[in-house]
Amino acid sequence: MDNIIRIAVQKSGRLSDDSLSLIKECGIKFYNGTGKLKSTATNFPIEFLFLRDDDIPGYVADGVADIGIVGENEMVEKDKQVTVVKKLGFSKCRLSLAIPKSKHYQNLQDFQGASIATSYPKILQQFLDKNKIKADIHEISGSVEIAPSIGLADAICDIVSSGSTLMMNGLKEVEEIFKSEAVLISHQNLSTEKQDILERLLFRINAVQTGKNNKYLLLNAPNDSLQEIVSLIPGMKSPTILPLAEEGWSSVHAVVNEDRFWEVIENLRAAGAQGILVVPIEKMVI
């Protein structure tokens, strides 16, 4: 079916929630009731497969799914032949080495000859080889944090978000070895028709994410300070300037990136800007 694209999405968890939220913000309507493993959008040529996250790279590589949203850690660990289309910027986490809180830690050499439990043996082995560390890797799936307390391993290598799970299991994070976020991946040989649908989806994703990363700014500026105020606004293009009913004043409209927002606002106030309004942007096409 070249007139529809099939996307693999994690069936539950934070990555699933973030992925489906993004797709819905793209204006794509679908039903994903509890336990549902397959769904078709009603207003866009896309079909959903709800899968385990570690199965997604394989499904995409084999062409069962055309595209997928998966954690970068799973993509690298599975090492399947897929194409990274876009890093999505959400569901960020890190893969780290952790040891019991009671143990003193100096440096990576402490892992020389140690036994390490992990669900990510490939990424861990690459890190150890890079740092010339020889350790015994125990591959286990799930409940990695319990390994040191039951004597299975000296340390663990696992995904960390807040670090609270490590603390609850008497562990401390000592080395970050890999940073991960959600990525959009695709089969390496999409048909022209499916590639066109993917480009349409990317257009919507970019519009949503660009909107989230920017704010719409409206302010009143005295004309004698107008040039200075305009120079302080790092907009995409020249801001819109409209005369106000009150003589000697103008209204300035611009887009400001979220990362520089507070710095820009402070500078604008110091330059004489008044009545500053900040409005969220739902979508932004550039």
Rank of each mutant, 00 (worst) to 15 (best):
I5T: 11
R6C: 09
I7M: 15
I7V: 15
V9Q: 04
S12W: 12
G13C: 10
G13T: 05
R14T: 09
K24A: 07
E25W: 07
F30D: 04
G33L: 07
G35I: 07
K36T: 08
L37Y: 11
S39N: 01
A41Y: 01
T42Q: 11
N43D: 09
P45E: 11
P45H: 08
I46K: 09
E47D: 03
D55S: 15
G58S: 15
G58P: 05
A61Y: 09
G68E: 07
G71H: 07
N73V: 11
M75Q: 09
V76F: 01
L88P: 07
S91A: 13
S91F: 09
C93V: 03
R94L: 05
I99N: 00
P100N: 12
P100T: 12
K101P: 00
K103M: 05
K103T: 00
N107T: 13
L108W: 06
Q112I: 03
G113Q: 04
S115H: 04
I116W: 07
Y120R: 04
Q125V: 04
N131F: 07
D136H: 14
I137K: 13
E139T: 15
S143T: 08
A147S: 12
P148Y: 12
S149G: 12
I150R: 00
L152H: 13
I156P: 10
S161K: 03
L171N: 10
K172T: 02
K172N: 05
I177H: 04
S180A: 11
E181Y: 15
A182Q: 03
L184H: 08
H187L: 04
L190H: 02
E193R: 05
E199V: 10
R204E: 15
R204A: 10
I205V: 02
A207G: 14
V208F: 07
K212N: 08
N213L: 09
Y216W: 07
L218S: 14
D224L: 04
V230K: 14
V230N: 13
L232D: 02
S238L: 06
S238D: 07
T240D: 15
P243N: 02
A245P: 00
E246H: 09
G248C: 01
H253L: 07
A254F: 01
N257A: 10
D259L: 06
E263G: 11
I265Y: 01
I265H: 00
R269E: 05
A271G: 03
A271W: 00
A273M: 02
L277N: 14
V278A: 14
V285H: 15
